[in-house]
Amino acid sequence: MAIVLDGIVFGLQLSLLAVGLTLIYGLGGVLNLAHGQLVVVAGIAGAVTISAGAAIPVAVVLAVAAAAALAWLLDATLLRPVYRLTGERRVLLSLLVTLGVAFLLDGILITTHPFTALNLSVPGPAIDILGVRMRSGSVVASIIAVTALAAVLAFLRLSRFGRAVRSVIQDEEGAALCGVNLPLTRTVVFVLSGVMAGLFAITQGLISSVGATSGLDFTILALIVTVVGGLGRVSGALVAGLVLGIVHAVSSFYIGAFVTFVILLGVAMLTILIRPTGIFGGGAR
């Protein structure tokens, strides 16, 4: 039971990480292979702020802001030529460009901050949930993740702008004909995905830590969840995140961490080979 609960916490985190990636892909056909680096940038920004003596809330805000700012910068500069292409060409160039960004940031961060890592310990005793003791850090992380996911869902389902975002995902040209400002929508969603990545960094800092070398790992995790949930499908990413989080926890406990990673990768590969639209995609987006 404790393992499943751990799995759910990790699953919520995975959803948080994957929703941003899947939204960007759905919206602009851009697969952001530098997504994990957004997390790392947030983590390092937070850690640096804390070591400079700032209060934790300030560091948290700055961390999230750093990821959001980087996301905005990417969208406003390097991805502009990508958006000018259409279809497969856009996807391909986006992959290559963001891969370049990932390595660029990795190289810089690993060199300049080799030993910096974000660690946010929450004081206070473990909390009993359903008879299982949970570390208070995990509880806070879950609350953050649930709140953020609920907010994103509400935004997409209920707000006028959220409806516009969904319309762009379904038909870019149709949305433009309805008067939706595509570049602005993309920018807003890109920044949103940066915020989500930043929040993920906070939750990760609460549970373990975020260091300079983990960027690619985070990207891959997000990618696995996104693929299993169906590329571009928000609800799919939510469900897939939870399921894979539980699988991850159970499998790590009984089999071991490295096999677990291989299993997750295998699930993603099989998903593509068997049902490229995703396992948990369903009809609703």
Partner: peptide, 22 residues
Amino acid sequence: VPAERRLFPDMTVLDNLLMGAY
């Protein structure tokens, strides 16, 4: 209104109409 219509297939009829007034 293009010949291929460009509706939003997974959204409801009402949501499609509301998008017109976006």
